[in-house]
Design a binder for these strands. Structure first.
Lengths: 128, 128
DNA sequence: GCTTGACTTGGAGCGCACTCGAAGTCGGAG
DNA sequence: CTCCGACTTCGAGTGCGCTCCAAGTCAAGC
């Protein structure tokens, strides 16, 4: 079972443009198979890998670093420790980001409460 | 008590360049005061407002929308409900983002556990 | 046989948010 | 009086991550 680029796009939530861009940019593990017509045919494994890419991207990993990770995986067995390191480092960054956003959101919530209480009072301006 | 641009930068975590850029871009409530020399002098209120901007930015609000918010505040009393709406809408987006990142991180954590258990086993390749 | 539409390539273009550079002004220290 | 460093403006440049375009190919349906 293989997928056209449109099907792969639909399954990964990316566009066909982005899929080609990722491939050009070395983010995929190897060159995608082709139909006799020259059209790309994505395997289940391709889609699984690309899904992992989207997770890394969605959590803020820069494309440069995703490529580093892809390079390691492409390198085959023997560098699992490096891969793990990379993922753990990323994990820490994500947790720090989450915490930072959470803290900012809390301050924004305070502002929201301020507006709420201001609006709860009847307007005093021009109340004649 | 007022601050030079360098002091305001230090207090808000932005650069002097960015502070000028924000002002040019209409993100501040009004034109910053000047010393007789022409140098900017930021008030406490300016710094408080800019801090709010950094919170909106840090939670992913685009500059365009921050400007919309600034325009409302600059508009004075009477549009508090609109401001509240804007903040509430933003809040929902941030919560959705947080949840999405959290979910992706969970999948990455699974991958991390996979590497961990793989590394826990002694290597079998070329074990001769 | 013709049309339609999904695909191909290489390269250009875009939106966002800064970030920097050049050239000039000003106040205060030595 | 001279120098230094912090500031000023305007406009150009940068990095990231796509996003799109033009021109061409191919398979399938009518």
């Amino acid at each position: 079972m293989t997928f056209t680029i449109a099907e792969a796009a639909q399954r990964t939530g990316l566009t066909a443009h982005t899929l080609r861009y990722y491939e050009r940019d070395g983010l995929l593990l190897d060159v995608v198979d082709r139909a006799p017509s020259g059209h790309r045919r994505y395997t289940e494994d391709d889609v699984t890998w690309i899904t992992m890419l989207t997770r890394l991207r969605a959590t803020g990993m820069p494309i440069r670093e995703v490529r580093t990770y892809a390079d390691l995986v492409r390198g085959g067995d023997g560098n699992e420790r490096e891969r793990l390191e990379l993922l753990l480092t990323h994990r820490e960054k994500v947790l720090a980001d989450l915490e930072e956003v959470r803290a900012h959101l809390e301050a924004i919530d305070t502002k929201i409460e301020l507006y709420r209480s201001r609006l709860a009072r009847p307007a005093r301006r021009r109340s004649a």
